[in-house]
Design a protein around this nucleic acid. Structure first.
Lengths: 254, 254
DNA sequence: ATGCTAAATATGTCCGGACATAAAAGCAAG
DNA sequence: CTTGCTTTTATGTCCGGACATATTTAGCAT
């Protein structure tokens, strides 16, 4: 151990950082390709001449960066070849994501079973003909309240049809959170797709907006840990009343 | 220690998680307010009857969530009362943010000095009448190349007017990165605002898209560490050729 | 009162050991 | 060949000890 006291000159990194960097380089260089299993903790201890504690800290760093995942018996599996995280957008909740605040309220317009048309099937990445329970709601600003900010269709498995009533009774809460509660599933990932559309004649009367005027159309998939779709949603917001703001900050080294 | 074997029934969380939750609750409840110092590691060991290792894991969890920061001699200081980071969107680079990949190329359409109109002043959060050097570029898909994916106006301080030539010579690189390099400033934060517009007559010929058709309009501010605007940009993308996809994943506890 | 130095304090790194847990692999029986 | 049980394997939790490091505090000299 006395050899390691030489780091007392203040210029040497901790051992675990060296090991993490070594492993990170090996992954990036392809010698530990995506899908491969890292040497076991004990093998790495032998290889680097360090304690298991030190190896674990190093690997935890890789896991935090999303490069590897760890499973008992199977080992430590490479998930990604690059630490890809240089900018980060953080939101506290799904509410923040959709830019609704405390002054917005939802009004359920209609709810019921629907069969996925080819267009809806494309939105929800499901087979055409799939049955969904749809809750359509208009979103208003609580203070002004006169015209809707947007219309959102939320799609859930028909076994959760009771969320229609729950949504009516709790207009301040998102439907996706009701479903997550009732199923015990956790929303682990949200995929979002934004595009621009023209408001058609059907939406124009609902949204009290001129047909042909521009709107943002946002499709969201709320996914659980295994990647299964828990809830889908399709929102349309007249451009004049709604925009999406976000902020990304740099993390890690430049 | 034998009392702790009772967690072998599979239902009890690890001890470090209980301690982290306790501390998190105390912080949220205000008994450990922002700016205060947590009990020392050794005090927490005595209080919870656990080893220092266990306490450190618990506090590391709080530190990862941004609730506390740790300093030698001073101790562990509460930074925030709420864990604000539940979902995270990560992008590797500014290129990824704007959804341009290796198969897209930029063609400079025009470059020159402009004076900020009230509308532009609103976009760039600057006083009307401010002078900017503007570089207008069309973005094409390298493979298909026939119609533009969008038009982007980038605004920089006129002292950096040479980026116009740089942009012409390196059509694969973002102008914001040129500016950052030349000024030695680092893009620390990117603010983005997305809305929907109709393509007007001027843009329709540039973008080879029908006037009145929908498009995404994206305003971005590239900010340095002090929050100063380094570069502004305004992009318009016909909806039929461009959409914004993003993915947010859950971090930290449910 | 000011400045410098040494001591004290709280966190950071690392070691090694023991046991728990999840899950893959192996083996035996039907 | 399939099923069920046991063993083995790799990670996860936790203990306790030792030394290093950054930095504040206390003490002393001018």
């Amino acid at each position: 151990m006395s050899g390691h006291k030489s780091k007392a000159d203040g210029t040497a990194p901790p051992r675990h950082a060296d090991i993490a960097r070594d492993l990170r380089d090996a992954i990036a260089a392809g010698s530990l390709p995506v899908g491969s299993v890292l040497p076991t903790e004990l093998e790495l201890c032998a290889h680097y001449g360090v304690s298991r504690h030190t190896v674990r800290i190093a690997i935890a760093d890789l896991a935090d960066g999303g490069l590897v995942t760890r499973r008992k018996r199977l080992g430590t599996v490479v998930q990604a070849a690059q630490p890809t995280r240089s900018y980060r957008q953080t939101v506290a909740s799904v509410d923040d994501l959709v830019r609704y605040g405390a002054d917005h309220v939802r009004s359920v317009h209609r709810a019921g079973l629907v069969t996925a048309s080819p267009a809806l099937a494309k939105d929800l990445s499901c087979p055409a003909g799939t049955q969904w329970f749809r809750v359509s709601s208009l979103r208003y600003d609580r203070l002004t309240g006169d015209v809707p900010l947007g219309l959102t269709d939320v799609y859930v498995d028909p076994v959760h049809a009771e969320v229609g009533d729950l949504a009516r009774r709790s207009p301040d809460r998102l439907i996706s959170s009701f479903v997550a509660e009732r199923t015990g599933q956790r929303i682990a990932r949200i995929k979002q797709d934004v595009t621009a559309v023209l408001i058609d004649r059907r939406l124009s009367s609902l949204l009290i907006a001129e047909a042909g005027s521009p709107a943002l159309r946002i499709v969201r998939h709320y996914l659980d840990d295994s990647g299964a779709l828990i809830v889908g949603s399709v929102s349309v917001h007249p451009a004049s009343r709604f925009h999406m703001s976000s902020s990304l900050e740099r993390v890690g080294p430049g």
